[in-house]
Design a protein around this nucleic acid. Structure first.
Length: 305
RNA sequence: GCGUCGGUGGUGGAGUGGUCUAUCACAACAGACUGUAAAUCUGUCGCCUUCGGGCUACGUAGGUUCGAAUCCUACCCGACGCA
């Protein structure tokens, strides 16, 4: 029996992934061989949150052109959503879509989330403990490292080898796991192989990407991104949480609090978003199965599907 | 024209006789990442290198000194002040 096909559209920010996903979904609908169409599963760690729209470049109802989208607006931005939750929901959505004889199209720029689904990453069965994290966050990285060393020598060594002794986020999670399981289990993934993933990567040459980011930023501001963020804050989203959400939420918040000027905000955002795009590439580069397309050139859809 | 202050690496900006290729920040480049991932963290960042080291740098040209980015002289450039 043939494995169901799942299309994965990933790549740098500002490369038009969402548009392409809709285009492909519609094309599948009208195509001869597969007349049932595609449905999109978003793979974006910030678009899962309700109310984060302009700042995340979330697709609008109109832009969806009737194509169903999953995993948008499913979480409260005040609470932390996690890769684990994402994985569960995405796998479920995938199965649902296939059951209805449609093609799932996973589309987004969060490589960690995509891999969790595609590779079937098995996360240790230890949910985040906010209290523990809060108390550990007060400690210095040296202290955290010592704590981990006592709990799990191997994981501590591993973290050191990867030059992550200063990475508090990672140290805290390792401690969290080691505390309940005794040690951090080795990485495992369940490549169950139930699906055939077709991975499509979108990218842009640096200079063009930079221009695109600049333009997009200005247009988002024009559309009212500052008001969106002001509003989120008015409704109880703390500045601290904004800081965590990163990029536009972080730097626009800093501007709204008068910590930086508007000029500084724009400059910082342009450069930080570009850096983010580079980081995305660093992640995706490792996956040799991705077929890459330069978006500044014309893409032949027939080549993709 | 006179006077004052200043000219440092891609940028900003420390350093004011030896430990200086020169704190730091930014930019740039590369990398990591397994329940925070738009987050978080690391490395490189004058030139050459057999990775031990070698070579050249702090406006320009001289000088003082065992030794100068640091002191002196002249010149060039910039800002300000006085004419």
């Amino acid at each position: 029996m043939q494995k169901p096909k799942v299309i994965v559209i990933l790549g740098q920010t500002a490369t038009g992934k969402s548009d392409l996903a809709v285009k492909i979904a519609l094309r599948l609908r009208s195509g001869q061989a597969q007349k049932y169409g595609g449905e999109v599963i978003s793979a974006d760690s910030r678009q899962v949150y309700r109310g984060l729209d302009l700042g995340t470049g979330k697709i609008t109802k109109k832009e969806m052109k009737g194509v169903p989208h999953y995993l948008l607006d499913i979480a409260n931005p005040k609470k932390q959503f996690t890769a684990f939750e994402y994985q569960k929901k995405a796998i479920y959505a995938m199965a649902e879509i296939i059951k209805r004889c449609k093609v799932p199209i996973i589309c987004g720029g969060t490589g960690f989330y995509i891999d969790a689904v595609v590779n079937g990453t098995i996360f240790p069965e230890v949910p985040p403990s906010l209290k523990l994290r809060k108390s550990l966050a007060k400690k210095t990285k040296e202290e955290l490292f010592e704590i981990l060393k006592k709990l799990d020598k191997n994981r501590a060594r591993d973290i050191k080898n990867k030059n992550e002794q200063n990475n508090k986020v990672r140290l805290i999670r390792a401690i969290e796991i080691a505390k309940t399981l005794g040690k951090v289990p080795p990485h495992r993934s369940c490549l169950c192989g139930n699906y055939k993933f077709v991975k499509i990567g979108l990218y842009l040459p640096d200079e063009i990407l930079k221009q695109k980011i600049e333009k997009r930023l200005l247009s988002r501001i024009k559309k009212g991104m500052l008001a969106e963020i002001k509003n989120l804050h008015k409704n109880g989203l703390s500045w601290k949480r904004m800081e965590e959400l990163g990029l536009e939420y972080r730097y626009i918040s800093q501007y709204l609090q008068n910590q930086i000027t508007k000029q500084e905000m724009l400059k910082k955002l342009n450069s930080e978003i570009f850096k983010y795009a580079k980081r995305q590439m660093t992640w995706f580069k490792r996956d040799k199965e991705i077929k890459w397309f330069d978006v500044s050139k014309k893409i032949n859809l027939a080549k993709i599907i």
